[in-house]
């Protein structure tokens, strides 16, 4: 507060302080209300989806293929496709990302090369997902001739989630106290022995949490998979890496973009399935994180 604002006599001073306290209360309420905007939006969104989609949800919906007739349509192909894609993405992205994180945290010298790699990873995490789709289309689908297949989709999503997993894994590795490393070195362990037997096991819950959260982002991705040619209408589940595929969010998009209300309801039911899958993954991540934080 500036000198000129300061009141001179007692009555004015009392009024001034009352105003300050009132402003404080108003601000607290405004902040609380702003916080509720996000919470209310989440509640309304979930209510909207459940109101539209809950009655469509039954066993037949989970075990039927897509159909021109809304009453017969289901999400079997999309659910199977999503599980294929996320499993493959995990298999490809997890080892590469953890290796990269171990290098950056435990091995890398403080040099411009390390800084460049680090900056590059941070920037990759900010690239819009659709740009990864363009890369996937040009590189995997066209240049490598993998065509519109499960493996093209999984490779594209692997590139997308790797920067996120690397940064989460780095954070987990950084949280391991350096005394652990020093003690192991003191016993004559080599760098790799320190990493493999001490640092990595301690950091693993954190790494897994970050990985699961990144993969749950991959499960919800639509745009890059449209780019690499996932199809919206499929009457079989993928049997191999080179089969064509669809995924839950793409099936949902396909239904949303039809004007009939019946398909909108199917989309809502599909969203419930997708959100259930995501919440399950998040719950696993949170349980891992809580066990981890209670131990350290």
């Amino acid at each position: 507060m500036t000198r000129s604002e300061r009141p001179v006599d007692d009555a004015a001073r009392t009024a001034f302080h009352r105003r300050r306290r009132l402003a404080g209360s108003v601000f607290a309420v405004v902040c609380g209300a702003a916080t509720l905007v996000g919470v209310v939006a989440l509640a309304v969104l979930l209510a909207d989806v459940f109101a539209d989609g809950f009655r469509e949800l039954d066993v037949a919906f989970l075990t039927s293929f897509a159909s021109r007739f809304p009453e017969r349509a289901g999400i079997k192909a999309a659910l199977a496709g999503s599980i294929w894609i996320v499993s493959l993405t995990a298999l490809i992205a997890f080892p590469l990302s953890v290796a990269a994180a171990i290098y950056l945290e435990e091995y890398a010298p403080r040099s411009w090369v390390t800084r460049a790699i680090q900056t590059n990873i941070a920037n990759l995490a900010g690239v819009p997902s659709i740009v990864y789709g363009i890369l996937g289309l040009a590189l995997f689908v066209r240049a490598l001739g993998l065509d519109r297949s499960v493996i093209s989709g999984a490779l594209t999503l692997s590139l997308l989630v790797m920067p996120v997993i690397i940064m989460a894994a780095q954070e987990a590795l950084r949280a391991v106290p350096s005394t652990i490393r020093e003690a192991a070195y003191g016993l004559g362990a080599t760098r790799w022995q320190v990493v493999r037997t001490q640092v990595l096991p301690m950091a693993m819950p954190g790494i897994l949490t970050g990985t699961i959260l990144a993969l749950s982002r991959a499960v919800g991705e639509t745009a890059p998979l449209i780019m690499v040619g996932a199809v919206g209408f499929l009457a079989f589940t993928p049997q191999g890496l080179s089969d064509s595929f669809t995924v839950l969010p793409l099936q949902i998009y396909n239904w949303v973009s039809r004007p009939q209300d019946e398909f909108r309801a199917l989309a809502a039911a599909g969203i419930i399935v997708l959100l259930t899958l995501l919440l399950t993954m998040n719950a696993v991540a949170i349980i891992l994180r809580n066990r981890y934080s209670s131990r350290s």
């Binding site: 996000g38 919470v39 939006a41 989440l42 969104l45 909207d48 989806v49 959260l213 749950s216 982002r217 499960v219 919800g220 991705e221 639509t222 745009a223 969010p249 949902i252 998009y253 949303v256 909108r264 989309a267 809502a268 969203i271 997708l274 959100l275 995501l278 919440l279 998040n282």
Partner: peptide, 14 residues
């Protein structure tokens, strides 16, 4: 965090 994790296609539907 849940709000941040909701897929964008769901926001489109909403």
């Amino acid at each position: 965090e849940i709000l941040a994790g909701i897929p964008t296609v769901v926001y489109g539907y909403f």
